[in-house]
């Protein structure tokens, strides 16, 4: 696999899909490069800890296996996030069934964070984490997709299975809560 060229970097998702379907592996690499990190962030914020990469890989394998059925009514990004969330929920269900590990309360997902790159002080970062961990799962999903991925509410609604208006309310409640944690001196 070579480095994605400028041509692949600038191409739209739809163009890259068409090229991959004609056998261009670099197009697949460009799509994975473009979407894997956001998916990993989403999975981590949703509480996936040790198997984020596996989850992201499964998401891409599922998506690429069904690309012939993908209709560009929604964006590829939205589709990938939807698949990722569905896979994550399936895993949690099967984990609960097996009961071979401590049940993870969706409302208190524990997220492990790498060292921040200096932009946020450790104390501030901890406050943000505390605030995020106390959000409801739906609030956290909406907030992450809005803040981290810059998704419009319509797309967020598709991913989380809610309405645009409800997502807007979830976002504003979430940011209000985070601000309260930050100003809690």
């Amino acid at each position: 696999m070579g480095e994605p060229s400028a041509k692949t970097v600038d191409a739209t998702d739809a163009e890259l899909i068409a090229r991959w379907q004609r056998g261009d592996q670099r197009a697949a690499a460009a799509l994975v490069e473009r979407h894997s990190r956001p998916l990993a962030r989403f999975a981590a914020i949703l509480g996936e800890r040790e198997q984020v990469e596996e989850l992201v890989q499964d998401t891409f394998v599922r998506a690429f296996g069904a690309l012939d059925t993908f209709r560009s009514d929604s964006s590829l990004r939205t589709w990938l996030f939807t698949i990722c969330k569905r896979l994550l929920l399936d895993r949690r269900r099967s984990e609960r069934r097996r009961k071979d590990q401590v049940e993870l309360d969706e409302g208190h997902a524990v997220v492990e964070y790498d060292a921040l790159d200096g932009m946020v002080g450790e104390e501030t970062a901890q406050r943000v984490r505390d605030g995020m961990e106390r959000l409801s799962p739906l609030q956290r999903e909406v907030f992450t997709l809005r803040v981290s991925e810059g998704m419009p509410y319509g797309e967020i609604a598709e991913v989380v299975g809610s309405t645009e208006g409800a997502c807007r309310v979830h976002y504003h409640n979430a940011i209000k809560s985070i601000k309260e944690y930050l100003s809690d001196d």
Binding site: D114, A125, S148
Partner: peptide, 22 residues
């Protein structure tokens, strides 16, 4: 701040391994 924290929460993924599995 929230964006920085979310980004830091995500582990790195091996793009090559994912592409190979497609």
């Amino acid at each position: 701040f929230s964006r920085a924290v979310i980004t830091a929460a995500a582990p790195r993924v091996d793009v090559g391994a994912i592409v190979a599995a497609l």
